[in-house]
Design a protein around this nucleic acid. Structure first.
Lengths: 350, 350
DNA sequence: CTGAAAGCGCTTACAG
DNA sequence: CTGAAAGCGCTTACAG
């Protein structure tokens, strides 16, 4: 095993002190008035032996790791993976490395991961929090660690949040269905207390109010497999034959829903219109194309990194908490097209 | 800023030495014959103050980080993100944390990331290597760091690789098209030297041999945007009106291809049959459903982690290199259905 | 202008 | 059975 060169080895070889080498390596040669020829000799030798600093030692000494920990719900969800990639890239430009992991919305897993980050002395946290981790976040705040929550926030703890207006996104989506003549609109959502899910549900309810429809709601248990989701949604659709449109609260529920609809041999939008929250490639490619509420991925990512960096570079962690609310956008496609038949049905129902 | 408790603080408070605390914390109380009541007192106090070890310090001392670095091509590609999640989970169970990042197949980015991992003293590496990083991998090997390459391998460096039989996957896919009566089959691939791409191309050529067709090949430049890919593929299809089937070498090329085919208003498989390498949800959902060569994601993931763990736990890094070759599977769907029209066309062409 | 020394928070031979 | 001490590889006041 080749032993790696340390600052000490370099210093010894060049007959200088390790402090001198450290200053040169960190660009502090000038302020410590180290002779230019020495600087050159050190730099040359460092290059020659291919010296790479031990960042573990550096972290231990400085208390900074230049690491950011990011917790998403699931890295294979296109919404999260897209944000992770942009944040990763921006963080990288600013000299930080991003460390991400998936919580599956599991409280215990999330807590374990936060602790793992903490034990590695990450400088800041970006978290899509599952419910129940309030105390852990509070503990982070007590250590003055910069924490940004995104996608959802926690009611009981003051933090800086980057979220979208889920209420409005849902309201617009469902209003769009109403405008296009659908009159019996169901919602398929997660059985979850997460803030974004509550807000989407509220938006749905608000839209229904305008036409005095009562809600037709399916709450799917969180940890079901996709097959199970398809089954549950299929049963729900079969049990509610009068609904003429469905609003899905997340993209993967919509994907399961599309499979269910297909297996029931229902035609979209003739028998059933569809709108989903969270846009993705599949929705552009599907036949028919699926109307979806798109989250402004790039704006979200940039807001996250901006807020975090501000707090990382302020001397004692910007105390002020902010909540950034971004606007979602409705991408209207064929799955929610106005159609005569649904209008008729609406009249029948009403 | 609340100062975190250290082993030293605990030792002082309980009037014992920090060594004792360290032994207790690491489950070495027994072998150091520490009194049970002391053990209990230490554990109780540790719990009371919510002590969390500083893993940075531990790493520095032990030279182990319990960290694995993983480099994928792009974390938003379902193939890579699925593997990353499984490996993450397995590693987690074994006490390792996974640290992953995207290279975009960029040599320089990959080298920078490997160095970042190295500077953080990761214990092992899992890499889908872009061409050109041979020297960096060689350097890792010289340090006796366990390295597993996956998805592709590098010709000029001896490593442990987990790959699939790309040649056979492609051969089967194209043979399937031939069996179903298609006689003028194009391939759309990446302009890349990567081993898996070369093997897929060879498989295509081999299949063509059986019917003496000359290749009709489009090599798409690697870093094009999706829009550009769609355009290039559309032009290619327009310029080659006699082809009756296309074999796409990757899932994202196929997605671009499907968009191109749609814009040309060609019907699948009537005007053009389609088969893609790398299966994904979209292909099950698309109309028509798309035939694809599926990689055994779970087997790949488990092979990677198994090989890595073996090398991590062997005293001086298992020297033997192995190449694990797994079998892909062809998921036959509607996009490659036999149809009369194409048979006729074949006869015309032949 | 440059060097010797302390210390970040751990672990582990070594003494007793 | 338990403690004192060295050392992992850095950085940074402090001396001179």
């Amino acid at each position: 095993m080749k032993k790696r060169t340390s600052i000490h080895d370099i210093a010894k070889h060049l007959n200088v002190s390790s402090a001198t080498v450290s200053f040169v390596l960190n660009g502090k040669a000038e302020e410590n008035r180290i002779r230019q020829d020495l600087v050159d000799r050190i730099l040359a030798y460092v290059k020659e032996v291919g010296y790479r600093p031990n960042l573990i030692a550096k972290s231990l000494r400085t208390g900074k790791s230049k690491l950011i920990g990011m917790l998403v719900e699931g890295i294979s969800d296109p919404f999260f993976s897209s944000i992770a990639r942009i944040v990763e890239e921006e963080a990288y430009k600013l000299g930080y490395k991003l460390f991400y992991a998936s919580t599956d919305n599991d409280k215990d897993k999330a807590i374990a991961l936060i602790r793992a980050f903490r034990e590695r002395q990450v400088d800041g946290y970006i978290i899509a929090p599952p419910p129940g981790i309030e105390d852990e976040i509070e503990a982070l705040k007590e250590e003055n660690a910069p924490v940004i929550l995104f996608d959802r926030y926690l009611e009981d703890v003051q933090t800086t949040n980057v979220v979208i207006d889920n209420f409005k996104g849902a309201l617009n989506a469902v209003s769009h269905l109403i405008d296009n003549g659908y009159g019996n609109i169901a919602m398929v959502t997660l059985d979850s207390d997460q803030s974004q899910m509550i807000d989407r549900h509220q938006g749905y309810l608000k839209a229904l109010k305008s036409m005095k429809q009562k809600q037709v709601l399916l709450k799917v248990e969180y940890s079901l497999t996709e097959e199970k989701n398809v089954e549950v949604i299929r049963d729900f659709l079969s049990a509610n034959p009068t609904i003429d449109a469905v609003f899905f609260a997340t993209n993967y529920l919509a994907v399961a829903g599309l499979k269910a609809i297909k297996s029931l041999k229902l035609s979209i939008p003739k028998n059933l219109a569809v709108v989903s929250f969270d846009d993705e490639t599949l929705f552009e490619m599907y036949s028919p194309t699926i109307t979806a509420v798109a989250q402004p991925i790039s704006k979200i990512s940039h807001a996250i990194i901006k807020e975090l960096i501000q707090r990382l570079s302020s001397v004692d962690g910007l105390k002020k908490n902010e909540t950034i609310v971004l606007e979602p956008e409705l991408n209207v496609r064929d799955s929610s097209k106005a159609n005569i038949k649904s209008k008729e049905r609406k009249t029948e129902v009403a």
